[in-house]
Structure formats: C-alpha cells, structure tokens
Design a protein around this nucleic acid. Structure first.
Lengths: 370, 370
DNA sequence: TTAGAGGCTT
DNA sequence: AAGCCTCTAA
C-alpha cells in the first residue's frame, strides 16, 4: 500500500517533462524511504535516475516495496490534468495494477481523481558504480541550459574541459565553432561548498557541521581517504578537492551507497509541509536547489544564486552528445542549480537536486575526443 | 437595409472562431431587434445559436428582417482583415446579395471596406423548445475549457453528473480514467444568482432591480410561472430553482424578447468606447461576462470571478461527446463565465453570455449513459 | 513589459 | 510536423 501526498503536482509534472522523452516506460520503485526510478534511455546511451525521498512528501506511507510499472506517456497525460499548485496524492495497492492520482485544488473546491493502468516492466536495476570524479562544476541550471542549447545549434557534440582556467564548453559546427568559458566565482565556490552533500551516506554529519571551517576540515579528511581509491587520481594535484569526492563518491560501498542513505528530509520531520521544511533549513548544505517556485532570483539569503563553482583534482576533457545534454537540461525547471561531475573516460553525471529529491543523468563520453 | 456598427471587430472575430468549425454556412437573421444565427453542425448533432442584440451595437438599424446567407469561412477570412479594436460596420441592402464590412481604426486614420458575397441558404429554423432544466451549473469558462480539454485527452465522452455533492465530470479512457468533482462555492452561488437573466423578455425590469433581494423575489415569481410549462419539471422538487428556469426558459415570448433590453452601452452614452463602458457597469446583472480583454483575474469589482454555482431540482446524469464540448469551449474567448443547463435525456445547453449577446450550444446526450 | 511554454491550426 | 498565436510566469 502506497500513499504519498505531494504538495505540488508541479513537481511531478516537471519531473515527467524532464524524462518522458528519454524513457517510455519505467518502474517507480516505492519503498519506505521514498520513490526511485532508474532507467536507460531508448538507445541505451544515457541513464536517468530519480529519487523522491519520503521526507519530501507532505505525507508518505509505503508498507512494503512496490514497483509501479508506469508508461510515462500515460502518466504525463494524466498529470496534464493537474494544475501546478494542486495537491497530488498517489495511491496504489500492493498487488494492484492501478495507480490512483488525486488532485485537490488548494481551496478544496475541486477534486479530481484519475486511475491509471500499470504495467509489468523488467527492472534491470543497473548498479551505478561509485566514481571518484575528478572535477565538479556547480552552476546555475539556466546557464547550463543556455549553453547546451546555444551550442546545439552549431554542432552535434560538445567538448567539456575543466582546467585551472575554468570550465570550457566547445563545439565545432559546419558554419561556426563556438566555445564558452566559465570562470569560477569565489563566492559561488563558498556557496556551493557543500552542495549536493545530502546524497552522501554521511549526510547526517554533514548536516551538523554547517559551518565552513568544520566542514572544510572534514572534507579534507575525506579527501585523503578518497585518494586511496581506484583509478588513481594523482595525489599531488589534490588541492581543490574538498567536496569533490563527497558528493558522488564517498564511501567504499560498491554499488548503491549513493542513493540508499539519502534520508535527509526523512529523519528531521516527516509531516511538515514542504514549504515549511524548506524554511527550516538555514543552510542549503543538505538539500537546497529550491525548485523554481518563483524563487527570488538572488535576494534570498540561503539559496545559491548565480556564479560558478569549480572543484577539480585533475584536468578533464571529455566530449558528449549535445542532443542528450539538451534533453537533460529540461530539468532546469526542477532546480536552480545543476552539478556536473566529470572524470576522464567515464560517464558524465549531471545532477539536479530539488526539495523532494534529485534527478541524475549519466552520459557516456564520445570516444575520440581530443 | 441593415446597418450595424460594432465597437470592436474582435467580438465578431471571436464569434466566428467559435462556430466556424461547427458550421460552414448559416443565415444571419437580421431584424430590428438584432442579429440571430441558428444552425446545426454538419453532423446534425449539435446546434448553435447566436444572438447579437441591437442594443449591443454602437449603432443599429434594420428596417425589415433580412436573412444574410453567409459562408462562415469567407466571413472569417474577411474578418481576419480587421484589427481587434477596429470599429466594424456591417451593411446590407434589403435585396442585395452582398454584405459590406467596413473597418475603421479607432483614430479614423484607416478605413477598410470589404464586400462579401452572400448566398441563399435554406433556413430550416429549428425551433428550440423551451425546457425546464433540472440543473444549472455556472462556472468560469476557463475552468470548463480546462476540464473538457483534460478529459478529451483520456476518452471520447464525458459523463456529467449533478448532485447535491456538486457537479462531476467523468471520462473513461484506455490508459486512464478520470473524474473531476466541482463543489459549489457559496459566494459563487450568490454571485451568479441572476446570471443570464438579461435574456429574459423582462430584462428591463431585471436591470432596474440590481439589488439581490428584489431580484430574488422577482425570480421566484418567474419560477412559479415557469412551472406550468411543458415537459413537466416536478413542482415539488423546486427548492433551489430560483433562476434555473429563467436563464433559458423564461417568459412565453417565443423568440426574440431576450436581448432587446440589453442596451447598456446604448442608452447611457452611445459613443463611449467599449472599454469605458465596461468600467461603468457596476453590476454584472445584465451583461457581464467580460470577454477576455485581459480581464484582471479576480481583483476587479464588478465581474464574476471564479467559483462554481450549482442549482438543481433533480439529480442529473448525462453523457456527451467531448469532441463537441471542446469545440464549444472555444467560446471562452467571448465570456469569462459559462452556464451549463442540464436535464435528463434532453440536450445539454452550454451558454456563454457576453456584452453584445450570447452564444448557445445544444448537444444531445449519448444514449446508454448509466 | 518581456520572454518562454503550451495549445491550436495549417 | 512546423509555425502561429495565446496565455502564463518572471
């Protein structure tokens, strides 16, 4: 029995807008910790991974794990019937083949109910290997969208290069070549220091040490540990790495450590309304990425605004298909901030963190990148 | 000889946008009281009825009844040549086979003239029987549009059920079923009490008694009269019906009484611009349904905003083709408010009332509705 | 007031 | 499927 009450249907709507082009059918794996979705795109080039943590819901209950096999096209249709600010309640029985969605207008004078057929889907749960990324770029999601959209008008692929200089996006096209260099902003560096940390298995601790110094020392320690890991990141280059490994690569857990421990919202308070819980957090250290809730652009005190943060242990230089990146960038509706995690010869991770969870895309690099 | 001067060409444009898909050719029946159009759709399933009252024009003159056989496609083309805020003058001679349209820019620095060929059309003027509807639902036109559009994405038809609980729209589709329940809003109930009353032959009186109490007592009286009418509405069930019969069935005037009195623009001042006149109306009792002139959503003082009003004497439950309802809902450009009149086993009436008149659609229910 | 997204039409 | 137009959000 699943019953999940989401404060805003818009979250789901945006989520589906973000992935429905990539994937047709997918299992929403529901368990007591929340709802997860993981799927390869049709051409098996990209992987998308979504997490909605139980704590992100206004109310959440899932007695036992249920996989909900959903045709995303159908779900999109049904979600179109919801207004953005409707309260959305998801319901499913343990054995049922139906997902029920209820939309309640804020003033409760309209209640809509939709029942959607579910389907059986082979869930080849692909373990996502932990990776010690060599570079992490945190930037405004809108800027990322703009860059990949711009470059996609010129060429097919983009070369992403992270160096001391900054991060460079370069594309060669028939009629023109283009490249954009983003330099790091010091303020952004500070601001994003702990961004995305909520995903680590040590989220609790990170949460406690909001303060910069503590955080940094902690990070540094973790870094050292990191270094010993596979695929040899050169030690001596490790000057900038405080958080790099943390976000994605902490722990030595082979496969799922990353997502399993993501219980930031859950533990604190579980029945608070979403907006409330947002307000309670003083620092975006755990989960920020205030969606797009007409987020005040920059005046706000605790949310990241603008600027680019770059952390790297290694000069990286990879080439990716722009088509996919453009697709990924649709998730900008879910979060103001995006994080790119790179490592040479390894799939890129594009991660959007929002109030209820996160959405992550993995994309293998093109070979023969120069 | 017809000469009619319309304040805004936009009214006509929207009107034609609303019906041109439903009907190809139709007679504009002009007489001293205004212009009427009545036609079945191509498949003879739906009927559309338009009225533009003489009083709604800035200037109107029609010495004797003239039927103008118009190809709506042609008229649409010609109207496309007008700017929305152009003053539009329609002219036709008694015997002529040409309709002349003149567009004057507001500042008179541009005058365009178009002559359109008319045609002979068999006018099988279908008498629309007066009906004692069992339920009347008054709601924002945009909400109605939204509902039928949403449901049309799921299924072919919609079941509309009016009960004490409210009004429910339900549709079954292949991939999902859906239903929307609208509860009555008390405020809306009050607000719409007299809505649509302008159509009565006694509109003048209604106009004088803007006040609620007076209006209500009047209504009640009319109701009593109503009851005696055909098609037996049960008397004893008449608890909520003050206005139900009024909107559509009032009076014994067979045909044209309805719009004559609707001369708000005309009498007060007859050369004011439309927008000005709008501001002057204090009550929506006669003509409200502020078109779409980017009407401020709700802050305005004199227009109905939001909310659903339901009046019923009988539990009704009918099924209709969504395709047609979606089509009807295009008239939302003409009025903010729509009224649904229902009675079991009888065609649904969908009515939009706007400044210059109204547009009404009749749609037979599908049989076999449960 | 301007830009972006969604719906509708061709 | 692409372009146009409208409506909505910033």
């Amino acid at each position: 029995m699943l019953e999940a009450k989401l404060n805003e249907a818009a979250t789901l709507k945006r989520l589906l807008d973000a992935i429905k082009e990539l994937v047709q059918d997918a299992n929403f794996e529901c368990n007591e910790e929340g709802i997860n979705l993981q799927a390869m795109d049709n051409s098996h080039v990209a992987l998308v991974s979504v997490k909605l943590s139980a704590g992100g819901f206004r109310k959440y209950r899932c007695d036992r794990p249920i996989p909900l096999g959903v045709n995303l096209g159908s779900l999109t249709k049904v979600l179109k019937c919801a207004k953005d600010d409707d309260i959305c309640i998801l319901k499913a029985t343990d054995d049922g083949d139906v997902l029920s969605l209820t939309y309640e207008a804020r003033n409760a004078d309209r209640i809509a109910e939709y029942d959607m057929k579910l389907m059986d889907i082979d869930s080849d749960t692909l373990g996502i290997p932990d990776t010690d990324y060599e570079a992490r770029v945190t930037m405004p999601a809108s800027e990322f969208s703009r860059i990949v959209r711009d470059l996609s008008n010129l060429g097919e692929s983009v070369r992403i290069e992270v160096s001391k200089e900054g991060v460079r996006f370069a594309s060669d096209g028939e009629s023109a070549n283009g490249n954009i260099l983003l330099k790091q902003t010091e303020a952004a560096r500070e601001r994003y220091r702990n961004y995305g940390e909520d995903d680590g298995s040590d989220a609790e601790e990170v949460k406690d040490e909001d303060d910069d110094e503590e955080g940094r020392s902690k990070k540094t320690k973790v870094k050292k540990e990191k270094v010993k890991k596979e695929d040899g990141a050169e030690d001596e280059e490790m000057e900038d790495v405080e958080a790099v490994e943390n976000a994605e690569t902490n722990g030595d857990a082979e496969d799922e450590g990353e997502f399993k421990a993501k219980s930031d919202d859950e533990e604190g308070e579980e029945e608070v309304s979403d907006s409330e819980s947002k307000k309670k957090r003083k620092r975006p250290s755990t989960s920020n990425g205030k969606p797009k809730k007409k987020a005040k652009k920059s005046a706000d005190d605790d949310l990241p605004s603008g600027g680019v943060s770059i952390e790297m242990t290694q000069h990286v230089n990879l080439t990716f298909s722009l088509k996919y990146l453009v697709n990924f960038s649709k998730s900008a509706t879910l979060s103001d901030t995006v994080q790119l995690m790179l490592k040479n010869d390894v799939p890129l991770l594009v991660s959007y963190t929002f109030g209820q969870g996160h959405i992550r895309y993995y994309l293998a690099p093109k070979i023969g990148d120069d």
